[in-house]
Design a protein around this nucleic acid. Structure first.
Lengths: 195, 195
DNA sequence: CATGATTAGTCAGATTCTTGAGTATGGGAA
DNA sequence: TTCCCATACTCAAGAATCTGACTAATCATG
């Protein structure tokens, strides 16, 4: 049950509604976890029932009302416990890698296309993370911010996101290039592969 | 349902038993997917029922009998279909990142310890992937192998695994260093964080 | 002034993944 | 010779995640 702790960690940043969390956990800026809105609303309900977060109703004129949540003392204690316990190892689990693994025996063209597209997406995330990092550290240099800035947690996870997306982009571009070259060199590769 | 295709892709490499697959998908060398033995046995049963893989019983004297599986024509066609369809984006989902995200508000010491441990694990995987890559390309240089070697799929996914683990190792080491420095500079950080 | 996007959520159902236990045999170490 | 580890696999139950549909209001676009 780690989404629970991911939500708690995200809420340390300030008060958020389920909707706001959902956007952070969905689109690019989910730098340390990913979840769908339905999961988040359910999780927030559970967390509130357990007293780990406290929600308050905010009445809005022009928009539907919303509930803002913040972490309680009990929630912080729970996070503390979680952080002290051992972490599970993390694994890559990626459709695109499965396709690349099989590329000797299937048509390469759609795989190349998807690698190119994925590189584009990763590059867009690199930009987003770059800007987010700049915003987080304000006028300080990275060195200064890492030494003394606060909060540092979101900055550090964002650095990880940046590194991950850069790696993804570079690998996708390189592999797309390799597969294109090979297809050009021996077009029959794309159907049955070599002996 | 992508484990299905991950298993098909893994079986393109040759005939494997559930047990052998389980080891590949469990420990370090699962360079493109991860799954537990129970999942794999269940998946193989389903795949066989659907005619996407064919199993044959191998009677062994000194060990329990086993069933070796290979991909059928229908299985290859299914992989082909899968590869031509759009890929879902891949996301980071990592306990350790959640802890780092929260590091301003919780004790840093156990997080630093886990970062160090994770760096060690990642470094071990870097070594494993390095050796595996060398074995896969044999006497060829990387450039030669990428241009003409076969099978190329497993090599490419292994390259991704290598890059991922290197990134993981470097980030963990860097962040552990940063957090250690900060804890040394202002020890009270470890309890409540700065204003 | 219709159409679609955005905000703010909820509900049900299916699939996938994880946890934990259990079966059975043979080989090697203490 | 007892105990643990490796091989090879099975079953059940639960937790987590994903898919898809739905409500309902306001705002911007054409």
């Amino acid at each position: 049950m780690a989404l629970k702790h991911a939500v708690l960690a995200a809420l340390l940043d300030g008060e958020y509604s389920g909707y706001q969390l959902a956007k952070a956990f969905d689109v690019g800026v989910a730098n340390f976890w990913h979840a769908l809105p339905q999961q988040l609303y359910a999780e927030l309900t559970r967390l509130e029932a357990d007293g780990l977060v406290a929600g308050r109703q905010v009445v809005q004129e022009t928009r539907p009302n919303k509930r803002l949540f913040q972490v309680t003392e009990a929630g912080l204690a729970e996070l503390q416990r979680f952080a002290a316990a051992a972490s599970k190892p993390s694994f890559i689990r990626d459709d695109l890698l499965v396709k690349v693994q099989a590329v000797d025996r299937i048509e390469a063209a759609p795989v190349i296309e998807q690698l190119t597209e994925r590189a584009r997406i990763a590059d867009a995330k690199v930009e987003i993370f770059g800007k987010l990092l700049a915003r987080l550290r304000g006028t300080a240099t990275e060195e200064e911010f890492l030494a003394h800035g606060a909060p540092i947690g979101p900055y550090l996870t964002c650095l990880r996101g940046l590194g991950f997306e850069q790696e993804t982009r570079d690998w996708c571009e390189r592999i797309a290039g390799v597969l294109r070259e090979r297809a050009a060199g021996s077009p029959e590769l794309s159907r049955r592969g070599p002996a």
